[in-house]
């Protein structure tokens, strides 16, 4: 993918003209760094069982992954419509009651994001994965679990940050959103999954070439790489399609 740093031509009236900064609280910074470690260690530690029994492994991994992503949203990301919280300086004390309200205001959108991810993104991505050549008549659980994991790694953070504004989602679909940690993670996950499909046809007769092990592995690695690259290297860049 070629990307060019542009002098951000802002889309009028949309919240997606600027890259999203993660919250600056200590917990946020800590968890933002912990999340890649969690994701990588998940795929690394469960790789053997994933190869042996993809369906039950992916089923088992889905709820923790959803939780990891939801916590990421709550702890690290500004919710849609909410300006990045610069209000609190680190170390400033807040009132307990307010903090509780505040937390609740964040958990609700995170929950909604997760629900949307499983009910909307996952089926849509299932269709996309099948269009890319996934088996049409067999391996339905495998493909659906792949779509679910793909959805969980690509969309919750975007729902959480951008809400459901159609203009923003058109921009997201057309790669017009400036790259940041969340978008980088989504793009990285897609590219990783794409690359993960390449070793499948090789005649090495390895167990790990089984559907959808390589794609899932590529997906996790891609998400982590994309997140780091989007958050540090390409932050603020925009992909120029034409």
């Amino acid at each position: 993918m070629e990307a060019e740093s542009t002098s951000a031509k802002p889309f009028e009236g949309s919240g997606a003209s600027k890259p999203v900064d993660i919250l600056t609280t200590q917990a946020s910074v800590f968890y933002a760094n912990l999340q890649p470690v969690l994701l990588l260690s998940t795929i690394f530690l469960s790789f053997k069982t994933l190869v042996k029994d993809p369906v039950s492994t992916l089923t088992g991994l889905a709820p923790p992954l959803a939780l990891v992503q939801a916590i990421y949203c709550v702890v690290c990301l500004p919710s849609s419509g909410q300006a990045p919280t610069q209000a609190h300086k680190p170390g400033q004390k807040r009132k307990a009651q307010k903090a509780g309200q505040h937390l609740w205001a964040k958990i609700t959108p995170a929950f909604v994001s997760t629900v949307l991810t499983t009910t909307l993104s996952a089926p849509v991505l299932y269709i996309v994965v099948v269009l890319f050549g996934a088996p049409l008549v067999s391996h339905h659980p495998h493909t659906f679990l792949l779509a679910l994991h793909l959805a969980l790694l690509t969309t919750p953070q975007l729902y959480y940050v951008h809400g459901l504004d159609p203009t923003t989602w058109l921009q997201i679909a057309s790669l017009q959103v400036p790259i940041d940690e969340t978008y980088g993670m989504s793009l990285g996950a897609c590219v990783g999954a794409w690359l993960g499909a390449i070793p499948i046809p090789l005649d090495w007769d390895r167990d790990w070439q089984r559907w959808p092990v390589t794609v899932v592995t590529g997906l996790y690695i891609g998400a982590v790489v994309g997140k780091i690259a989007g958050g540090y290297v390409f932050k603020g860049w925009k992909i120029k399609l034409s």
Binding site: V128, S174, L175, Q176, W194, L241, S242
Partner: peptide, 12 residues
């Protein structure tokens, strides 16, 4: 892949 990217591009 081309189709999906062209779809994205068209939407933009």
């Amino acid at each position: 892949t081309f189709g999906v990217l062209l779809l994205g591009s068209s939407l933009g």
